[in-house]
Each structure stands twice: as C-alpha cells, then as structure tokens.
C-alpha cells in the first residue's frame, strides 16, 4: 500500500524537480526586484509592481497561453532560444519550471519585500559608520535580517510551484515523464474511469509533501528569529 508505483514516483520526482528549479532560478531575480521595489524610487515603479503581481490576479490559463505565445518554438523569444541555444521550452519540464516560476514570483517578491521594508535602516547606517561599504552592509546586515522573509518567500513559491496546474497544462501540456507533475497526474486519474483509488493516493502524497515543507519552514524561521533576537 505504501510503496509508490513507478507512475507515482515519476510524478513526485518531476514535481520536486520543477519546483526546486523554479524557486532556485527565480530567487535571485526575486531578491533584486523586491529590493528595487522596497528601496528604490524609479520611473515606472508602479508598472513594474503591477507586472510582477499580474500572475497573481490573471487566470493561470491566460499566463500559460501567453508563455506559449512568447516562448513557444515559433514565439519571438522561443524561436530565438531555439536558434541560438537549441533550447526548447514548450512541452518540456523546463517549460513547466518556467510556468511555475512565473506563477510563484509575486508571492516570493511580496514576502521578501515586506521583510526588507521591516529591516531597520538605522542599523545599516550604523554599519556604514563602522567602515562597511553599501554592498558589505547589504550582505552582512540587510540580508541576514531579511532571511525570515526570504525563507517565507521560498516556501510560498515552492508550494505554489508544487500545486501549479493551469499555466503548466496550457504551456507544456500533460506529457507522462516530461511534464506530468503531481497535479496533472491527479487530473489524469480523475479523468480515467476507476482512477479513484490512485487519485486518493496522490492526494495523500500531496498533503504529506505540503505539510513537510510547512513544518520545515516553521522550524527554520523559529531558529532564525531566535538568532535575530526575537
């Protein structure tokens, strides 16, 4: 009963792979965008802010379709990627990671930005008077104090990626072993007569994975908060 079938193992592995790549790939950009939004004033800031948050309010299918149009083999960016680097995104797991990253991005940026805004600027000033350059201040004061927010952003992004369905199925379709992540596998089973038991097993796996991520982040956050002095 508790041994996973090859199909389930495949879906879990693929989901984790997609989520990890999506989060790891978008974290540096997320940090930069969060920092820009929290600390800088520049023309068009409102528009950037809106664009970042767009995936949060658009139907996922719309996001998936836009990705397909832009990044598909014949899309402007997709064609260039294929011609220059030989990279194909549409209908591959890399495309699934892109779709997940785009959908998770606003959640990640929001969490990191909030945390950045709550960092006491006066501590940064104190670090400057002690001889630290702005970059060093960022690395040794701002970043450590933002860590709880970054962690929250990572967990939210990871969870969003694991659950991503609409944009994924639209952009990269539902290909077993390539783009059939947990939610897509679950969807397939639900569509299949007699798939009820298999569907329930996937539901349980999803719940266990989500809970594990949540508990891990709680433990980490508590540790960081204790270290940061409560």
């Amino acid at each position: 009963m508790w041994n996973l079938t090859p199909l389930e193992t495949e879906a879990v592995r693929l989901s984790l792979q997609v989520a990890v790549v999506a989060v790891a790939g978008s974290l540096p950009i997320g940090l930069l965008v969060a920092w820009l939004l929290a600390r800088r004033e520049f023309p068009g800031k409102t528009i950037v802010n809106g664009l970042v948050h767009l995936p949060l309010i658009l139907p996922p299918v719309v996001v998936g379709y836009l990705l397909l149009v832009v990044l598909g083999r014949r899309g402007p960016l997709g064609a260039w990627l294929y011609d220059v680097f030989g990279i194909t995104l549409a209908f591959t797991w890399k495309g699934a990671a892109i779709a997940s990253a785009v959908m998770a991005f606003p959640l990640m940026v929001r969490a990191i930005r909030l945390s950045l805004e709550s960092v006491d600027r006066r501590l940064e000033h104190a670090a400057r008077t002690l001889g630290a350059s702005p970059l060093r201040v960022f690395l040794t004061v701002t970043l450590p104090l933002t860590l709880p927010g970054i962690l929250t952003g990572v967990v939210l992004g990871f969870a969003r990626s694991m659950g991503e369905f609409g944009a994924t199925i639209t952009f990269v379709s539902n290909i077993p072993g390539e783009t059939r992540t947990l939610p897509l596998a679950l969807y397939s089973l639900v569509q299949t007569p007699g798939g009820g038991e298999g569907a329930m097993r996937l539901v349980i796996i999803s719940v266990v994975l989500a809970m594990a991520a949540l508990v891990a982040s709680e433990v980490l956050t508590r540790r960081i908060s204790a270290r940061n002095g409560g």
């Binding site: 000033h125 670090a127 001889g131």
Partner: peptide, 20 residues
Amino acid sequence: LPPERRRLGYVFQDDRLFPH
C-alpha cells in the same frame, strides 16, 4: 566622503547593535 571612509566612531542614542 561616504560614512565608511570618514573613520568617525558613532555611538547613537539607541544602541543599534546588530541583533543577529
């Protein structure tokens, strides 16, 4: 000169110790 190149120690009203 930026603060980090002025070589002035600054003790603030509030301690501003790094909490981490």
